[in-house]
Design a protein around this nucleic acid. Structure first.
Length: 456
DNA sequence: TGTAATGATTGGGG
DNA sequence: CCCCAATCATTACA
């Protein structure tokens, strides 16, 4: 290849620079002569030109013969030098030489992705990163390894196909380049070809082939994505959350019953607490590519959203059914809250006389007293009309005690449906806005919104 | 094996 | 974009 191009360069270079062609047979330029001889030469040139123009219409053998004849024609060197002159004047040989194509961003994307998926990277990786991440997703369940190896096998297959195809393309590209260079070399006998032209031609060929390669890469990427989505689809098989996770979620739900809409941060935190990530416990940080709605990546917060969505709707639909659960979690929260209150009281007594009434302020981790009251209302049917905003520590302690007492014998109180009309739900069936933005959960409330005291 | 529970998806609405 | 409501699909359990 190198030798070839060098050879071509010298060939073309000599042709261009010196007008010295094929054994120094350069003829004087045609325009230098006139008279009787002139007409004959004109005739000659016209003849040659005609032959050149029609050469492509002929059969290969015929053309070869013609070519040979042309090459041996006495006018050929003269024509050649004329062509050289023309070329020099028009600057054709330089044109386009400086075309430097910048790296295609799309190609880079594809390359990166193939690398990330382990298709184009080092052999050993083999997509294990992606597969392992996805595998870790299902928390090491038994069927996991099967899926995992299946995924790996398929990925290896894709990888192999990709590499053989790539090799094929490269080989074809090289072959074609050589072929074109041979052609050019051949042509350089009849017309001046500069090294830059050859370079340019090679560049064009490479660009063409790399665009084909890009298609290959693209389809490989697609294949990987399909495989991946199927793989994830398979592990999207529903798995119930762990008991602990459900507990945490329930605690949050029932303690925020007046406004059970956790903020994005709260969801994230809940997901973290519950070890819920995509695919339940994965650290993969992947999105579901097949998910119709683009879910947030990198955590299972959207699973938390699902859970809350389901919970809200099911709670609303059948509050009675959930009452037991509500009581249970109310009591649970109450206990933890009581601890907090106790601590708060102590804190209050010993530290500062200021009233800690802002729910989420300072060290008073009183989880959503407002919600607690709501719960209590639904517990026993009577209503605590006391100001939720101004609830002081003592009243909370009382209320909590009340709740705890109630939870002992909830079952009788839970019969009638109307009795349990949700105080938190408005006439339209929706959750009414929190009446006390400061005490009731607001989406933007502080870090205390997710109970740090929930058992986990 | 039937059924309830439950996580996920979908389509529509604001 | 988030939520609701309905529904699907899978899992848990009697």
């Amino acid at each position: 290849m190198d030798d070839q191009s060098r050879m071509l360069q010298t060939l073309a270079g000599v042709n261009l620079a010196g007008h010295t062609v094929q054994g120094g047979m350069a003829l004087p330029p045609p325009h230098g002569h006139e008279g009787a001889d002139g007409d004959g030469r004109k005739q000659d040139i016209g003849d040659i030109l005609h032959q050149i123009m029609t050469i492509t219409d002929q059969s290969l053998d015929e053309a070869q013969a013609k070519k040979h004849a042309l090459n041996c024609h006495r006018m050929k060197p003269a024509l050649f030098s004329v062509l050289c002159e023309i070329k020099e004047k028009t600057g054709l040989s330089i044109r386009g030489a400086q075309e430097e194509d910048p790296p295609d961003p799309q190609l880079m994307r594809l390359d990166n992705m193939l690398l990330a998926e382990g298709v184009s990277g080092p052999e050993k990786g083999g997509g294990s990163a992606a597969a392992a991440a996805a595998a870790a997703a299902s928390g090491g369940s038994s069927d996991n390894s099967i899926e995992h190896s299946d995924y790996r096998a398929k990925l290896t297959q894709i990888r192999q196909i990709y590499h053989t195809e790539l090799e094929k393309y490269e080989q074809a590209c090289n072959e074609f380049t050589t072929h074109v260079m041979n052609l050019l070399r051949e042509q350089s006998r009849t017309r001046p070809i500069s090294p830059k032209e050859i370079e340019r031609m090679v560049g064009i060929i490479h660009r063409k082939f790399s665009s084909i390669q890009m298609q290959l890469k693209q389809s490989t990427c697609e294949a990987v994505m399909i495989l991946r989505s199927r793989f994830l689809d398979a592990r999207r098989k529903r798995r119930n959350f762990s008991k602990q996770a459900t507990e945490i979620l329930n605690e949050y739900f029932y303690s925020h019953l007046s406004n059970p809409y956790p903020s994005e941060e709260a969801k994230e935190e809940l997901a973290k607490k519950c070890s819920i990530t995509v695919s339940q416990g994965s650290a993969a940080g992947q999105c579901f590519p097949t998910s119709p709605k683009s879910r947030p990546c990198s955590s299972g917060s959207w699973k938390v959203s699902n859970w809350f969505g389901n919970k809200r709707i099911r709670y609303k639909k059948n509050i009675g059914k959930f009452q037991e659960e509500a009581n249970l979690y109310a009591a649970k929260t109450a206990v933890t809250a009581a601890h907090a209150v106790a601590a708060a009281v102590q804190n209050n007594q010993t530290n500062s006389p200021t009233t800690p009434n802002s729910g989420s302020s300072g060290s008073f981790n009183l989880p959503n007293s407002g919600d607690m009251f709501m719960n209590m209302q639904s517990l026993n049917g009577d209503s605590y009309q006391g100001s939720q905003v101004g609830a002081n520590v003592q009243s909370q302690v009382d209320s909590l005690r009340h709740v705890i007492n109630q939870t002992g014998g909830y079952s009788d109180a839970l019969g009638g449906g109307s009795l349990y009309s949700p105080h938190n739900l408005n006439a339209n069936g929706g959750w009414q806005d929190a009446t006390t933005p400061s005490s009731v959960t607001s989406p933007t409330e502080g870090p205390g919104s997710v109970h740090s005291d929930t058992s986990n």
